[in-house]
Simulated assay, not measured.
Amino acid sequence: MFFSEPEPPRGTPMQVTDRIQRLVAGNGGAMTHHGTNTYLVAVERGWVVIDPGPDDQSHLDAIMFATGGKIGRILITHDHRDHVEGAAWLARESGANLAAARASLAQGDQVDQRLSDNSVIDGFVVIATPGHAADHLCFQLGDVIFTGDHIMAWAPTSVLQPDGDARSYMESLGKLLQIRSKLFLPGHGPAIRNPRKFVGALIARTREREQALWDQIANAPADIDHIVTESYGTLSPEMRGIAHRTIGALLLKLAGDGRAVCDGARWRALQ
């Protein structure tokens, strides 16, 4: 169900719709695919920028050049470094208003306007979608939804303890499934042009993964280290840490659903 795209250009915006451009940062990697997508949206008076991306001067300069510096608002999907590091510089240089779910970002930058579910700002409807991160937001503009890291085409979204929450993630998927749209624009990777079908498949896949984990601990109760080894095999230390946090989030959801319990360090299934 997942798909990618050819390596995109850097420093040059790609036209997505008549109002929306996509600018890809040069911070590609195992967790960011080709890099963070910054979206430039033309509004009545200038531009709205969604997720300025990393503290990469060439990327920030490209945003300023493409918009002529006429940025009225910066919208943040969630407070992860690859999405927000450049926000303070861009706001300062352009004079833009910085809007996010939290009052301040992790690096200490103050937010001008806090956003909440169903609020409307510059024509964008704010959709609270916790799961990948507790403060995660999506933004709907007409039949387009900017999905941040909540839904991506190239890979399943990481839901990692402690900030990630598997139950909230599933609830947020269900929420987006009910909203009519024609195009998802994720925080990394290509656009999704059949959103409802994609979300439905994603929900089914996540349920299957959850059931497989339940089956695993039903057959053989184990601690998380053992579960990670059985599920993923040999991993680099970095990826093993990510897998550990992923499995931990899923186990907590199973426990919350009354389907699993932790006895000491060992997890076992409940019938």
Rank of each mutant, 00 (worst) to 15 (best):
M1F: 11
F3E: 02
P13Y: 10
V16G: 06
Q21A: 04
L23E: 06
L23M: 11
M31S: 07
N37I: 02
V41W: 06
V48L: 13
D51Q: 14
P52T: 06
D61M: 00
T67P: 04
G69M: 10
K70I: 05
G72R: 09
G72I: 01
L75A: 10
L75H: 07
I76A: 14
R81I: 02
R81C: 02
A87C: 13
A87H: 06
A87W: 11
A88M: 12
W89F: 10
L90V: 01
A91I: 07
A96H: 12
A96W: 13
N97T: 14
L98N: 02
A99F: 02
A100V: 04
A100T: 03
A101Q: 14
A103L: 14
Q107Y: 09
D109Y: 14
V111W: 14
L115F: 08
G123C: 05
V126L: 13
I127E: 03
A128H: 15
D135S: 15
D143K: 02
A153I: 01
W154A: 07
A155C: 05
S158E: 14
Q161L: 15
D163W: 11
D163I: 08
R167Y: 13
S172F: 06
L176G: 04
I179L: 09
R180E: 11
L183A: 03
G187C: 11
I192P: 09
P195K: 15
K197T: 09
K197H: 06
F198N: 02
G200D: 07
L202K: 07
T206E: 09
E208M: 08
E210R: 09
A212S: 04
D215F: 08
P221L: 11
A222Q: 13
A222Y: 09
H226K: 12
T229S: 08
E230M: 05
T234A: 15
I242R: 14
H244D: 11
G248D: 01
G248M: 01
L251I: 00
L252S: 00
K253I: 00
A265H: 00
A269S: 06
